[in-house]
């Protein structure tokens, strides 16, 4: 069976700035992987390039459940089963969450589960009072992350990339987000948790951890990597990458 996500030799640049420099990553269905790396190592760029953000010039291959997505538009990738939870979710003034989820359902007529998932995710995450409010407008950091997790629940993707879903949150909120990620784990989904700090990994279990430095994965391994990074930081990797 093919993996949820398979990335081969992914490169991306903006003008002369090379940000991703040949990245490989495989995430099987049912697993949760963490990508850890210092600021500026290209983590958000990876999620945007996979999503198809036209700002970046990209090459290489990425497949979702075996289907190549690099030649697809942003919306086609979403409908192919990719979901990006944004580090900085965009405000959409005047458009409510309900307006958005309604349009999501209309965009994917072959999937008749939207209404049911909307109700379920709304209940699970306590979103009732946010659904009539404008998307990401005047929300706290934690509320924005919750809203992203809600949309993930509605979209029901094959691959979810959660970019810094833990940043800017207090410890209780981090624990809550970790629980949400754990509850998403399932045989039809591969999850990538992008994080700068190992903090969130104390409250959830990652099957594999990838260290990203200088636009590529420089080391992959088990949960022990998080402990190492907590003790030693990224310096050794950065020196090696620069060397």
């Amino acid at each position: 069976m093919s993996s949820a996500l398979e990335v081969r030799d992914l490169k991306a640049s903006i003008g002369d700035l090379e940000i991703l420099t040949g990245l490989d990553l495989v995430v099987p269905f049912g697993e949760v992987h963490a990508i850890m790396g210092p600021n500026g190592s290209g983590k958000s760029t990876l999620s945007h390039v996979l999503m198809g953000n036209p700002v970046y010039e990209a090459s290489g291959s990425a497949t979702i459940g075996g289907v190549e997505i690099m030649d697809m538009t942003v919306d086609e990738r979403a409908r192919a089963g990719l979901f990006e939870a944004f580090q900085y979710p965009t405000e959409v003034p005047g458009v409510t969450l309900d307006d958005l989820t309604e349009e999501m359902a209309i965009s994917t007529p072959s999937d008749d589960g939207f209404e049911q998932r909307t109700v379920a995710a709304s209940e699970r995450l306590g979103m009732e009072r946010f659904r009539e409010r404008a998307v990401n407008v005047n929300l706290s950091g934690g509320e924005k992350k919750r809203s992203e997790m809600y949309l993930l629940g509605v979209a029901n993707p094959k691959v979810a990339i959660l970019d810094e879903i833990d940043s800017g949150l207090d410890i209780d909120a981090v624990r809550e987000v970790a629980d949400m990620v754990e509850s998403l784990r399932g045989p039809g989904l591969g999850i990538v948790v992008i994080t700068h700090y190992s903090r969130i990994l104390r409250y959830m279990s990652a099957d594999r951890i990838h260290v990203m430095v200088g636009g590529r994965v420089v080391r992959s391994g088990g949960p022990e990597i998080a402990e190492e990074l907590e003790a030693d930081g990224y310096t050794a990797y950065q020196v090696a990458a620069a060397g």
Binding site: T73, R77, A78, E91, V92, I106
Partner: peptide, 28 residues
């Protein structure tokens, strides 16, 4: 552009994304 990208990342076609953005623009 950011709104269009965000809405498309939720599966909306560029046409639906722009239509929603225009509607939101006037809503206030």
């Amino acid at each position: 552009e950011d709104q269009r990208y965000y809405l498309m990342s939720r599966g909306l076609t560029p046409e639906s994304a722009d239509r929603l953005q225009v509607r939101g623009f006037f809503e206030e």
